[in-house]
Design a protein around this nucleic acid. Sequence first.
DNA 1: ATATTTTTTTAGACTAGTCTAAACTTTTAT
DNA 2: ATAAAAGTTTAGACTAGTCTAAAAAAATAT
Lengths: 218, 218
Amino acid sequence: MLSFTEENYLKAIYRLSEGGTKSVLTSEIAEMMSTKAASVTDMIKKLSLKNLIGYEKYYGVKITKQGKSEALMVIRKHRLWETFLVEKLQFTWDEVHDVAEQLEHIQSNLLIEKLDEFLGFPTADPHGHPIPDKNGKIQTVRQIPLADLVTSKKCVIRSVKDGSPSFLQYLSKIGVYIGAPVVILEKIEFDGSLEILIDGNKKVFISRDAAQNLLVTE
Amino acid sequence: MLSFTEENYLKAIYRLSEGGTKSVLTSEIAEMMSTKAASVTDMIKKLSLKNLIGYEKYYGVKITKQGKSEALMVIRKHRLWETFLVEKLQFTWDEVHDVAEQLEHIQSNLLIEKLDEFLGFPTADPHGHPIPDKNGKIQTVRQIPLADLVTSKKCVIRSVKDGSPSFLQYLSKIGVYIGAPVVILEKIEFDGSLEILIDGNKKVFISRDAAQNLLVTE
DNA sequence: ATATTTTTTTAGACTAGTCTAAACTTTTAT
DNA sequence: ATAAAAGTTTAGACTAGTCTAAAAAAATAT
């Protein structure tokens, strides 16, 4: 049984390693966890003893199969709870993160399987992020940043890459939502901003940064 | 902001003080929390500094108004979550306690108010225990142990006093549920057991202990 | 190739919560 | 009324997780 803290470290390592592919530095973990490198070193030793990560002094860590599986379960719980909060309790998509950060640590397999069923086995959370199934399998669909799409090609908004509350509020305000059909009307060369058409009827300008953070499928 | 542990102590003290009326001994708290008296003494000092309880060395503790209010909020959350688990996720009433013990510590007013609304502002949990409202107000209805009812008087099962999973499973098995109409057919003098009629069609014998643990209204 | 900078680890200390063992108070029994 | 028993508190130690400061290793720059 992992502690709250161990789960959070593992999740951070999983994210930083991009799904377990890259190895991760102490300083990166410290940054993501808002803590100091010395604390990270201590925790790394613990996780390493439990075979959740491989660790070589001074050369960072690599998540193991077992560690990856634990991380995926935490992510599964986080995303199922976010879905619950939005679909059932009418939270807005910018309000769910902090509560889900707490709910993801509740320990009960029965709970999470029943929640999954209650929600109709969703495959993506309110931000469009895929929900791992009970075996940790993630349904991956190739998505590209809206910024990389060519002008006048039709696409659908699938997810937000980094969804800070203020960015999500901004998106709602301009009418962007997961599933929205979008076309790029014009790319402004000066600053890389885009003029886009949402839902076939709303024309807006969005910054290059915003367009990098919106992932779409053609 | 109270810690997980502080909330649990406060809840125990609230229960043992019977809603803040009696004062509570260190050893009683230790017993209920499955810990040692020395640990209780330490925590008592902390809670006392935060004005959640009044404490006089060697003479036990008394919960304050503020402490009572905090305890009631934890109880409110616990019972709302139990209700959610049974009504929405199809848990049985004997499965909910341990999960609710975790969920009750999630910190978010928005969450609990939205959950309350989602559940239709229930006034009792699956065991018939009253759910404090957002101001900590409890709707009290006078209930008596089934054991104290006279023979052949109609009554309705309202709650279980101490609901261990195995007792709850037993009740389900014999057809007792919250809201069930019951009459005592006969009181067996030998051991205080009762023959009762449930739902107008099921005759069963239940022990004196069981009849003490079932609360009813006439 | 060596010196400097950056990063990581170690050492030692701190808080929250727990424990055991010993000291101290109160209660109970004679 | 006093001795024994029971219950409570203190003292000191332990674990989990955190921190700062110093030491050690690696990366970088000349």
